[in-house]
């Protein structure tokens, strides 16, 4: 099932990928995003996926998926191999966040990162009421979540600044997939960035 924000997330990423680009999608799952980038943008893409089910599904879809663990970085991939390296809704599941961002901008000319905003007002409300948030973009219970890192738009931008990453573009979506222009850290459920050096 593709959620509203997932569709909007994919729409934005697809609009940022220019025709015939070479793309690497990290945590590509069943390869749905890559399939779309290939079909709509004529992109040439590879995906990395850790889980067996995702790898099998991606292979069945004709996607060039490489089974591997993002925690081990992207060693083996040469510098500047890709136009875009995409990390869609996966940064929060990775332990070595800084290392992965560094690696993305080593093997790619531009990084595309999207993540659920923990400071979204509904999430704040849930915590205020004493419960961990469960929402469209944070759909898991605390005991079965693959998410390891919980951070906000402000937190992420402060890390970018510390790492001297250039934010080339930021788009923020609410749970329905609508663009949020004001108070993004309060009204935004999902944030999507284009990053460079």
């Amino acid at each position: 099932m593709i959620t509203n924000t997932e569709r909007a997330d994919f729409d934005l990423i697809a609009s940022w990928v220019r025709p015939n680009e070479r793309v690497l999608d990290l945590g590509c799952g069943d390869g749905s995003l890559l399939k779309r980038l290939i079909a709509e943008r004529g992109a040439y893409g590879y995906g990395i996926e850790r889980e067996e089910a995702g790898v099998q599904a991606a292979i069945a879809q004709g996607i060039n998926v490489i089974q591997g663990d993002l925690e081990q970085g992207l060693s083996g991939f040469d510098d500047g191999t890709f136009s875009h390296v995409v990390l869609s809704r996966t940064l929060q599941t990775v332990k070595h966040s800084e290392h992965l961002l560094t690696e993305m901008l080593r093997v790619g000319k531009e990084a595309v990162v999207s993540f659920p905003n923990f400071a979204y007002w509904k999430n704040r409300m849930a915590v205020m009421q004493g419960r961990m948030p469960v929402s469209e973009d944070l759909p898991y219970e605390w005991f079965d979540t693959p998410n390891l890192r919980f951070f906000t738009i402000l937190d992420f931008e402060s890390l970018c600044s510390k790492m001297e990453l250039v934010i080339r573009e930021r788009q923020v979506l609410d749970e329905q997939g609508n663009l949020i222009l004001e108070e993004p850290n309060f009204l935004g459920s999902l944030a999507i960035y284009r990053l460079g050096r």
Partner: peptide
């Protein structure tokens, strides 16, 4: 095996890899 995969990716050739 990943050496083969990375060489093919470097060239932009079609490759899938499973472990």
């Amino acid at each position: 095996s990943r050496e083969i995969v990375h060489a093919l990716v470097h060239n932009g050739q079609s490759v899938a890899y499973a472990e």
